[in-house]
């Protein structure tokens, strides 16, 4: 595990067993998150970004299973922990924020009790302290009138406020790492902006690391320090956020950036042809090759290894093989 890394994923493979054999939703990925940094993971449906998050938390449900790899968190391999030890990690050392705050909250319990529960389960507060702490947490995530909101049920809160409650729960035990899986996708754009600001401020105030998973390159540009781009279960490019946006190395990343609306209004957009492949039906070689404008002979033979593409910047693409 590299110096300064809080979390280090090594050759993680998570498969889903189907009647037609097992399919790798996450295929031999490696990355790390350093203390205090935000790593943005960007990908489309089926890219494996959410399965990566679930794998780290060991929440992959059958028929899915982690087939190989190591998940080093603070010098421990999470994959070797027993379930009890893992429960102590979840919520206490690694916080998790899901996309849909309505389903992540229990509709029949008051939000204050749900926050308090997190503290009680991990022995971070007595029952008496927990309520006061929950109010402070709601205040920290900028919910006005926390003293009365604490007794609300989830349905009494707006989508943005529910997401704030989830953030409060995720940071309640002062975890070292928070994983946020599409935390703003279900929200309106003005609320999204508030939540992203809040996440940034929380991260700075608490000195935590953030793994932010999204499909939105705009959200990545505004939030991440480093970026991992996923496609069909693999990380195809990693690099500092500026490098990714200024000099993207993988044709998929280039295509994504080029296809965004911009330029002269009314002009045709530069679309990526084709569609995202089904995981059980990946093309041979590089999974992106049928859609790639730069495809050449080696691309269809074997999946490309990771090649350096700049400072702390690499891409799984044969275009960079000569460097």
């Amino acid at each position: 595990m590299a110096e300064g890394a809080l979390l280090s994923i090594e050759h993680l493979t998570t498969v889903f067993d189907t009647s037609k054999g097992s399919v790798a939703a996450v295929d031999d990925i490696s990355f790390e998150i350093r203390s205090g940094e935000t790593l943005g993971v960007v990908g489309e449906s089926g890219s494996g970004k959410s399965v990566t998050a679930l794998s780290i938390m060991r929440l992959v449900q059958p028929p899915g299973r982690i087939a190989a790899g190591r998940i080093m968190f603070k010098d421990r391999d999470l994959l070797t922990l027993d379930e009890r030890a893992m429960q102590r990690v979840r919520g206490a050392e690694i916080g998790l924020i899901f996309q849909e705050p309505m389903t992540a909250l229990n509709p029949v319990f008051r939000v204050g009790d749900q926050i308090a529960e997190t503290l009680l389960v991990h022995g971070r507060a007595t029952r008496r302290e927990a309520r006061a702490n929950a109010i402070e947490l709601l205040r920290a995530v900028r919910i006005t009138n926390p003293e009365s909101r604490i007794d609300d049920y989830p349905h009494q809160l707006s989508g943005g406020m529910r997401q704030r409650v989830l953030i409060a729960m995720a940071i309640a035990c002062q975890p070292a790492l928070v994983i946020a899986d599409e935390p703003t996708t279900a929200l309106d754009v003005t609320i999204q902006a508030e939540i992203l600001d809040l996440l940034r401020d929380m991260k700075a105030a608490l000195g935590l690391s953030l793994l932010l998973i999204t499909h939105d390159l705009g959200v990545i540009a505004e939030t991440a320090d480093r970026v991992a781009v996923m496609y069909a279960g693999r990380i195809v490019e990693t690099g500092p956020v500026r490098e990714i946006f200024r000099s993207p190395a993988h044709p998929y990343t280039r295509g994504l950036l080029a296809s965004m609306p911009g330029g002269r209004p009314g002009q045709r957009l530069r679309a990526i042809e084709g569609s995202v492949p089904m995981l059980g039906d990946l093309p041979p070689g590089c999974a992106f090759n049928p859609r790639c404008p730069d495809r050449f002979e080696p691309c269809t033979t074997a999946p490309p290894p990771d090649y350096p593409a700049g400072v702390a910047h690499s891409a799984r693409c044969y275009l960079h093989a000569a460097r």
């Binding site: 499909h215 939105d216 390159l217 994504l256 296809s259 009314g266 045709r268 530069r270 679309a271």
Partner: peptide
């Protein structure tokens, strides 16, 4: 739609 597919459909709508 997936981000990489949105642009195709937008182009189709304009065409």
């Amino acid at each position: 739609l997936d981000v990489s597919v949105q642009a195709q459909v937008v182009n189709l709508l304009m065409d």
